[in-house]
Design a protein around this nucleic acid. Structure first.
Length: 858
RNA sequence: GCGAAAGUGGCGGAACUGGUAGACGCCCUGGACUUAGGAUCCAGUGCCGCAAGGCGUGGGGGUUCGACUCCCCCCUUUCGCACCA
């Protein structure tokens, strides 16, 4: 028997699949289609373990579906615009495009070494001129639909580098390169009106029953639909009004102050006249724009001196500028009810603002002077004039009605979801095809003048946006009036590219159009989408929105792009940090007397949190080493066996050996069957011999088990089941005479062929090789998934557990069809059970058919 | 801070609908074998105990004949938070 040599085998089959275009796919009306999509990678340089996991899972499902007879679309491409390319280009003095395409070359080769069943004919990168062109076209169509607009919004501004920073580039409120304190600055930016679809995005979550509940919940919370009341305070001695939105109109009589965002028009007005207020507003503008940063701030406020008049009592309420109020949510102003909102409570305590309890819970009444926290639960209204005595749910409606009657407010629905800001002040992205003309305003680039290409000759080292600093590119003529104009220099958020790539895969070669409607409608929706849980909200919500917008432009018919979603957990590893050199790779650390030390400076290494593998944290393991050492099959098997896909996977070297050894066991089993039963035909019926009957039952129970486990995405237990089958087959071979009797040969031949078929989607190379060794007909990956023989699944004897008061006391081997009464009698007659019942009276006997008998006694 | 999850032997995990806790694999221990191999095979392997037996699924409480599974409170870890992708 030859030794298992994965490197040689894998190369051979990969070459054959490529030569024969085995996984190339076209529309086929005779077969059910199955669209299996994996999230395409950002070409960062090399594949990492997260990719290996993602693509091993996707390939498993794709190959399984192929064996089930489906016509499977399984494409791959590159999410190729983005910041890292610019950073790398500056560092390595190259061009982002060159860096990106070089990375794609490397990563394509790496992916191919995994033996993935992709239709590579459909491959594209989102930075390809064709893709960028068609995306600009779609952008203009969205513009026509009224889904694109410009407004002011906040960015992280680095005052030293004079540039906009991404949230991840702001560390503890400072710029990552300059170290300067970051300011929030307003810029005019392009937005997509995702809020126009808020209701549909929320409602359609109910249809997505193939999605994890947790993702649907996260999206629903993100959209954040709430019912409330919108009204405007009149101000005391000031012509302006202060519109607010509240979800708690029932607490209206408990309002004792208002707070407004630092960017609120009233705040600006006050700041213009009052230096102290201006200083506070400036203070509020320090730091990054991320919601997390804002929410973690120490709550601060500044009394504007302005007074809002309570809509029902006319009481004068102070208006504070507060650093925790978001201009982007609601109206940028809130009515504050300290007794019934925790944040308002803390603020009121700090600023000595009165606290008015207006909702009393049943039971002990609240004493406003003794209150240590806001009461946010249900109750009955007090001190609320005409609303006294109402329960607060009813009060919500009554107060809303009161606002409506007086014509000063109305019940409204509000969403937490904000419109999607797609402007980026960066080079390596898709240009927004708009032109600023001093006479005509902002006008779209005419369709026939598309695409707006990125200039090749660009200086990335300038401060600010490189396109802004490229006069030849920036200056143009207005398509409407012909006067001198300038191009929009913002490029698009890369989430735009990932919002329609799955549609483009359906017909990537379509001429002169973004999409091939017929082929899109043939393949869509995606039947199974596989990707990381980190995309649960943003990417998946943007893609759903974009898809719906394209549906309304008649590019696609279905309402939702992804029917089933599998979110894989992170691949994680400990992080190691040197006080001198920062994050360290495993090979930059040595062990010294129990402590880990930096290989360069010898300082003691701090072993940090176990977290998502990422280049920036240096806690990556290179899958190429794994594949080069053990082969792709071992790498794939290990990733799929180590944990169920949804769970985070803590990287651990040991365990790879287990996968390797199992493949060797499989190798030996098949070769031994071949040698000891040459020319045997697989069994097709139950044999007479009892042991062989049990063995064949095991084969078919495994078919049943693996099939069900694949359905529920429990890949690790499916592998365990085949391991058990292979172990039993090896056992049988060890115990049987050589050469095998005819009946045994048939049973073992069936077992071996079954194991190969069941494992093929997991480990495609070794199974293909062994199938060929067995003299199998054609490619294994083109065979048909096995079906369990019902006769072989019938259990004759079963084990029944007997408990006394819930504790296990005996096991009974009984016929599967033993009547309940006889089962109960047998359980009570058991010696061990009798011993535990001594001196007790049997009160009750619980019989669970096929499982257990529980005797309850006292 | 807000939203969403996860926690089971020395380790990764299994237990599908409330019904045998620890399948399968790793590690480890003892033994066999020797073409000394990335070996392989056999036996053992949750904890305490000689045993009978007791204890045991992050911690505390509850529901139930019966809880890893359901409910309440707490702890720890992870993911996301709108310019990383």
């Amino acid at each position: 028997m030859e030794k298992y040599n994965p490197q040689a085998i894998e190369k051979k089959w990969q070459a054959l699949w490529e030569r024969e275009q085995t996984f190339r796919v076209t529309e086929d009306p005779r077969r059910d289609k199955f669209y299996l999509l994996v999230m395409f990678p950002y070409p960062s340089g090399r594949i990492h373990m997260g990719h290996v996991r993602n693509y091993a899972i996707g390939d498993l499902i794709a190959r399984h579906q192929r064996l089930l007879g489906r016509n499977v679309l399984h494409p791959m491409g590159w999410d190729a615009f983005g910041m890292p390319a610019e950073n790398a280009a500056i560092k390595q003095k190259t061009h982002p495009g060159r860096w990106t395409y070089a990375n794609i070359e490397v990563m394509r080769r790496e992916l191919k070494s995994m033996g993935l069943a992709y239709d590579w004919q459909r491959e594209f990168a989102t930075c390809d001129p064709v893709y960028a062109h068609r995306e600009q076209e779609l952008f203009l169509q969205l513009l026509d639909q009224g889904l694109v607009y410009r407004k002011l919004s906040l960015v992280n501004w680095d005052p030293v580098d004079q540039t906009v920073l991404a949230n991840e580039q702001v560390i503890d409120g400072r710029g990552w390169r300059s170290g300067a304190l970051i300011k929030r600055k307003e810029l005019s930016q392009w937005f997509l009106r995702i809020t126009a679809y808020a209701e549909e995005l929320l409602a359609d979550l109910a249809k997505l029953d193939g999605w994890p509940e947790t993702v649907r919940t996260m999206q629903a919370n993100w959209i954040g639909k709430s019912h409330g009341v919108e009204f405007a305070f009149q101000l005391d001695g000031h012509p302006a009004t202060l519109p607010v939105y509240t979800t708690r109109p029932d607490t209206i009589m408990g309002v004792t102050f208002c707070s407004i965002a630092a960017e609120h028009p009233l705040a600006r007005e006050v700041a213009a006249a009052n230096p102290a207020a201006a200083a506070f507003v400036r203070e509020c503008q320090a730091g990054g724009t991320s919601e997390e940063a804002l929410e973690r701030l120490e709550k601060k406020g500044f009394d504007t001196g302005l007074r809002a008049l309570h809509p029902f009592t006319g009481a004068a309420l102070p208006i504070y500028i507060a650093n925790f109020v978001l201009m982007s949510y609601g109206t940028g102003a809130v009515m504050a009810v300290p007794a019934h909102d925790q944040r308002d409570f803390e603020f009121a305590k700090k600023h000595d603002i009165p606290i008015r309890v207006v909702i009393q819970p049943s039971g002990s009444p609240l004493d406003p002077d003794a209150l240590t926290a806001a009461y946010t639960g249900p109750g009955v209204l007090v001190d609320s004039g005409p609303f006294d005595g109402l329960d607060n749910a009813t009060a919500k409606e009554r107060v809303a009605a009161a606002f409506q009657e007086r014509g000063i407010g109305r019940a409204t629905v509000n969403y937490r979801l904000r419109d999607w800001g797609i402007s980026r002040q960066r080079y390596w992205g898709n240009p927004i095809p708009m032109i600023h003309c001093p006479r005509c305003g902002v006008v779209p680039v005419p369709r026939e003048q598309l695409p707006v290409p990125l200039p090749e000759d660009v200086d990335l080292t300038v401060t600010g946006n490189p396109l802004e600093a490229h006069p030849a590119w920036k200056h143009c003529t207005c398509p409407t009036c012909g006067s001198a104009a300038r191009r929009e220099t913002d490029t698009m958020d890369t989430f735009v590219e990932s919002s329609w790539y799955f549609l483009r895969y359906c017909g990537p070669d379509v001429p002169d159009a973004p999409l091939d409607r017929d082929r899109v409608n043939h393949w869509m929706p995606v039947d199974q989408y596989v990707g990381g849980i980190e995309h649960a909200v943003l990417h998946l919500l943007y893609a759903r929105f974009f898809h719906k917008a394209l549906r309304d432009l008649s590019w696609v018919r279905c309402d939702e792009p992804f029917t089933r979603l599998l979110t894989q957990g992170m691949v994680r590893k400990d992080t190691m940090r040197c006080p001198e050199h920062g994050w360290r790779y495993p090979n930059e650390v040595r062990e010294d007397g129990g402590a880990l030390r930096c290989a360069d400076c010898g300082a003691v290494i701090a072993v940090g949190r176990n977290e998502k593998m990422s280049k920036s944290k240096h806690n990556v393991v290179d899958p190429n080493d794994l594949i080069a050492g053990y082969g792709a099959d071992t790498a794939r098997l290990f990733m799929l066996f180590a944990a169920p896909p949804e769970r985070d996977l803590e990287w651990n070297e040991s365990g790879v050996d287990g996968a390797w050894r199992f493949l060797n066991r499989l190798w030996r089993l098949v070769h031994e069957v071949l040698e000891r039963a040459p020319g045997a035909r697989p069994a097709r019926a139950m044999p007479a011999d009892r042991e062989l009957r049990a063995l064949r039952s095991r084969t078919h129970a495994t078919i049943d088990k693996v099939g069900r486990d694949l359905e529920r995405h429990q890949f690790n237990t499916g592998i365990a089941a085949v391991m058990e089958l292979v172990n039993e087959g090896s056992q049988a071979l060890a115990e049987r005479p050589d050469p095998l009797e005819v009946e045994a040969a048939a049973i073992l031949r069936e077992l071996a062929e079954t194991a190969l078929l069941l494992l093929n989607p997991y480990v495609p190379h070794i199974t293909e090789e062994l199938w060929a060794a067995l003299g199998g007909d054609g490619l294994l990956c083109n065979q048909t998934w096995p079906v369990a023989d019902p006769e072989a699944l019938v259990r004759e004897q079963i084990t029944i557990v007997v408990q006394v008061n819930g504790k296990l006391r005996a096991r009974l081997q009984v016929a599967a069809d033993l009547p309940e009464a006889e089962l109960q009698a047998a359980a009570l007659a058991d010696a061990a059970v009798q011993a535990h019942l001594a001196g007790l009276t049997v009160r009750k006997v619980v019989v669970v058919p096929g499982r257990l008998v529980n005797v309850v006694a006292k």
